[in-house]
Structures are given as C-alpha cells and as structure tokens.
C-alpha cells in the first residue's frame, strides 16, 4: 500500500533514513516514557547456546512469563567466552525493563577468576527460576558401586589419580567435586578435573572409560542410568530427587552435609526504575507459578525455584563466597 510513494524516489528514501534517524529515536523514547510498562516486546538474553540447559529453562519459563506480562517475550542467545559475552550484554543493556537476562551461577565468580569485572552487584537481580543439583555418576561394572567407595579411593590413592568431568575448569560441576573433597578434609584438587564442553561429552567419556566420575547433573544421565550403562551413586541435594527416588543424597550416603546446585535466574541491567522492577517481579512470580511452567520444568528433573530479589541476592552472595574459597584452593582464583 505504501509502495507507491516509496518507489517514487530512492534519494528521498535515502535522505529520509539518514536525516530522520535522530528524530525517530527521540520520538520512540518519548513514547516509551509515556506508556505504561510493558507496551512492546521484552527480550531475554540467554548467555548460553540454544538447546542447552539454561536455554531450555528460560524458554519454558518464558511461556508463562509472556502470558502474565501480556506482551511477546523473545529469547536471544548471546553465546561464547564461558558466558562472559552474554552476561556483559545483559549488564550493559539499557535498564528500561525491555531487555532482561538469564544470569547463571557464573556471575558469582567471573571476577574471582579474572574473566570479567562482573559480580552479582553488576545486575538487578529479580529471582532464581530453577536449580539443578549436582550428583556423582560412575560407570556400571567399574570399580565403584557407591559414594563410599569413591570417597575411600579419594583418601587412599594419590591426589590426581581419580578424574572427574562435566563442565569447564572452575565451572559448577568442578566446584561440586572440589567441595566434596574439602568436606572430607582433603585438598580441593584431590580429584583431577578434566574440562569438558557440557554434560553429554563428559558422560560419554565416563562410558568410554576415559574418566572415572561425572559430577554434573544426574538429570543428564537419566537415559544412560535407566539403560544400566552408568550408575548415579549420590545427589548433592538436601532431599532425594523425584526423578531418582533410589539414589541417596550425599548426607545419606556418607554422612557429610554437602550440597551444590547449579542455578538459573532472571536478572536485568542495573538501575531498573522501581515501578518497572516491581512489575517484573510480580508478573514473573505469576508466570513462574503457572501450572504448565511448573510441570514442564519438573518433568525434566529441574527444580523450579522462585525466591524474589532479596532472598536471591543473599543467596548469590553466599554462593559467591563458597565459590571464592573453592577456586582459591584450586588455584583458579587470580
């Protein structure tokens, strides 16, 4: 319908696009200030790849969030650099409530590991959305049958004999095994951690006999465990998981109170206007509580969590403290 005037002159269009730019931006900004939040689509930046754990969780949550918010919610993946790039993009976006992010546990130790000047304070923390506990998984028919035998080997054999994998160096699943060793009064680096690019390749290497332990989420090992290829010997959670009712917690298995979960959250660039933040917290909570979101997350062995800004900030800082101690012991803190 407007092809008529547009084809009439290329130069006109060109001039308009260049000269009109500033004017248009000003107009758009004025509109946004006037209207009540939200009046246009909201974007959530996911710092990890499409189809991965974080991406899946956020996409499932976004279905409910979108309904509660009343505008479309777009998921955008900004990957690379162990999450640094995506998290930087979230922290530096305009704090208008139209760009949100999915911060993961990495924000508690980017700075400790000297990867980026990012800490939990670099964001407006909204709430955790979900967590996935770590576990210990071994190959069926190998030298370990339970967590007890694993810990005995950790104590009796020279440091570095046992190997474990599941994430990059200093990643959550590395902290999981390092923390367990520390709780047993062993050096954090007792079990040698072999970096891997995600849970699946690490599990595969456990099956191929390349490494001894997978210390990532048991959820990723579910199919293999059911087919009898691997055995989940413990979960690092307070309670047993619904998906693995027969697998003991660490405390049940060896009497040591060690839990570690990787967590996923909704966050925003720092400095959100108060009423926008209140609206996001309110609609986020409502969307998160939607039955479809809850079922979809639980079906996949993910624990839904909604703890709100204050509790989440407290939690994130406590997590950062634990991570800093472990990373220092591992020699990864700089």
């Amino acid at each position: 319908m407007k092809n008529g005037w547009m084809t009439s002159g290329f130069s006109r269009l060109f001039a308009m696009s260049l000269l009109g730019g500033g004017f248009l931006v000003a107009g758009a900004a004025g509109d946004a200030a006037k209207a009540e939040y939200p009046d246009r689509p909201v974007t959530i930046i996911v710092p990890w790849g499409a189809g991965g754990g974080t991406d899946t969780i956020v996409r499932l949550f976004a279905v409910g969030f979108e309904e509660a918010l009343g505008v479309p919610v777009n998921i955008v993946n900004r990957t690379g650099g162990n999450g640094v790039i995506g998290h930087t993009a979230i922290a530096t976006a305009a704090p208008d409530g139209y760009t949100l992010g999915a911060c993961t546990s990495e924000i508690s130790y980017f700075k400790t590991m000297n990867l980026a000047p990012l800490t939990p304070e670099s964001f407006d923390l909204i709430s955790r959305i979900a967590e996935i506990p770590a576990g210990v998984t071994v190959k069926t028919g190998g030298r370990f049958q339970d967590l007890k035998s694993v810990v005995e080997a950790m104590k009796s054999e020279p440091a570095g004999t046992l190997t474990s994998s599941g994430s990059g160096l200093g990643g959550p699943w590395h902290l999981a095994i390092a923390g367990l060793a520390r709780m047993e009064n062993l050096p954090a680096s007792t079990v040698k951690f072999v970096p891997s690019q995600g849970g699946a390749p690490a599990l595969q290497d456990v099956m191929a006999g390349g490494i001894d332990l997978f210390t990532g989420s048991p959820v990723e090992a579910k199919s293999l465990a059911e087919s009898g290829e691997v055995k989940v010997v413990a979960v690092m959670a307070k309670e047993r998981l619904a998906a693995f009712p027969d697998v003991p917690t660490v405390k049940e298995a060896i009497g040591v109170d060690w839990t570690l979960s990787n967590w996923f959250s909704l966050c925003a660039p720092p400095g959100l206007p108060a009423e926008v933040k209140a609206k996001i917290v309110e609609t986020g909570k409502k969307g998160h509580a939607a039955p479809s979101v809850q079922t979809n997350l639980k079906e996949r062995g993910i624990t839904p969590v909604w703890d709100g800004p204050e509790q989440f900030a407290e939690f994130a800082n406590a997590f950062a403290g634990t991570a800093a101690i472990l990373l220092k012991d591992l020699g990864l803190a700089k």
């Binding site: 290329f10 269009l13 696009s17 730019g21 931006v25």
Partner: peptide, 21 residues
C-alpha cells in the same frame, strides 16, 4: 553504524539502493 538508529528497513534500503547505483 547507523542501523540501530534508523531501523533496519531504511538502512538496508540505503545500502542496497546506494550500492546498486
């Protein structure tokens, strides 16, 4: 440099049209 300010369609039209000329 300019697409973020003008929006995609004008910027792309300028690039295509200008280059074609």
């Amino acid at each position: 440099l300019f697409a973020a300010r003008t929006g995609f369609v004008p910027a792309a039209a300028a690039v295509i049209g200008g280059l074609a000329l």
